[in-house]
């Protein structure tokens, strides 16, 4: 999802140059009004005063950000201390998303590599097999995962039946369940970009290395990996970024102890808290984090392109 900024390719043709502004107008209007304007409005809201349960008062206030970073005691009159709770929720989200990314990489890289080294006519069918589950409703996939992982669910039944374990594993409502859920949600995002770069890789380089008596693993690490690094990084970003703001996996697979950013934001609007400016402020912080990651990525991409 991230890095979606399509390059647009080279502007080779100018056949419709005269009409270009009219052609772009609908997308400017629709995305501008219904995505860009709302995000700007949200930024404004994060600096407003909260009304008692839901809604805002149009008065400038920094209290939403203050609540995020500082603890001023029960009555709001103690000296400000740094409040670690919300930072901890962000940290947990980063950690969960990171674990899911690593898990996806461990499974996704060999898969992508394997597919890319199949005979050319078979590759499309492998890619097709990998992408189908992604097109199944995310909610349904998460629910299926929940069903599969239950204490008395099919996975545990299976493991007990083949005698691998004696008592069912307790996975549901743990961090592991959330990580598995995120991993499952975004695994194809890891496979596809890596596949694309391995496919482009020139295996003559590996053969040359092998001729110089490099072992296969050394060749993989020293020759192939640097060459396909852009694909690996793209895959990691594509898994990490949506995992960071995920709502369904933590909500359905984790218990309350696995509160992540998505649930924290949802609670401010749909739940008990009804604190809109705070919800807007958390969203702004999340957005800033994601855009920073994308910006760094885009800059490195450009540098890599300049080099080559």
């Amino acid at each position: 999802m991230a890095g979606g900024a399509a390059s647009g390719g080279s502007a080779a043709s100018d056949t419709y140059a005269k009409a270009r502004h009219w052609l772009l107008l609908p997308s400017w209007v629709v995305v501008g009004i219904f995505v860009l304007a709302p995000v700007l409005m949200m930024m404004v809201y994060s600096f407003l005063t909260k009304e008692f349960r839901g809604g805002v008062i149009w008065e400038f206030s920094l209290s939403a950000y203050d609540q995020f970073f500082f603890d001023r005691g029960l009555f709001g009159d103690e000296p400000a201390k740094i409040d670690w709770t919300y930072i901890a929720i962000f940290w947990r989200s980063i950690w969960q998303a990171g674990a899911a990314t690593i898990l996806s990489l461990l499974i996704g890289f060999p898969t992508a590599y394997f597919i890319a080294t199949r005979p050319e006519k078979n590759r499309a069918i492998w890619v097709f097999l990998i992408t189908i589950p992604y097109w199944v409703n995310l909610l349904i996939r998460t629910v299926s995962m929940k069903f599969l992982l239950r204490d008395q669910g099919p996975l545990n039944d299976f493991l007990v039946n083949i005698g691998l374990i004696d008592t069912p594993l307790h996975i549901i409502n743990t961090n592991l369940a959330v990580q598995l859920g995120l991993f499952y949600s975004y695994l194809p995002f890891m496979v596809l970009p890596i596949y694309a770069s391995v496919e482009r890789y020139n295996f003559a380089l590996s053969e040359a290395a092998a001729d110089l008596y490099a072992t296969k693993w050394v060749t993989l690490r020293r020759i192939l990996l640097p060459a396909v690094k852009p694909g690996v990084i793209a895959g990691c970003i594509l898994v990490f970024v949506p995992s960071l703001g995920a709502f369904l996996a933590p909500d359905l697979l984790g218990g309350a102890k696995n509160f992540m950013i998505g649930s924290l934001i949802e609670e401010q609007f749909k739940g008990n808290a009804g604190n809109w400016p705070f919800g807007a402020a958390i969203s702004m912080i999340l957005l800033t984090m994601v855009l920073t990651i994308l910006l760094i990525y885009a800059r490195q991409q450009r540098q890599a392109e300049d080099l080559s």
Partner: peptide, 10 residues
Amino acid sequence: NEAMLASLKA
């Protein structure tokens, strides 16, 4: 009750 109130006010 609180979620209902918040939603109505929103």
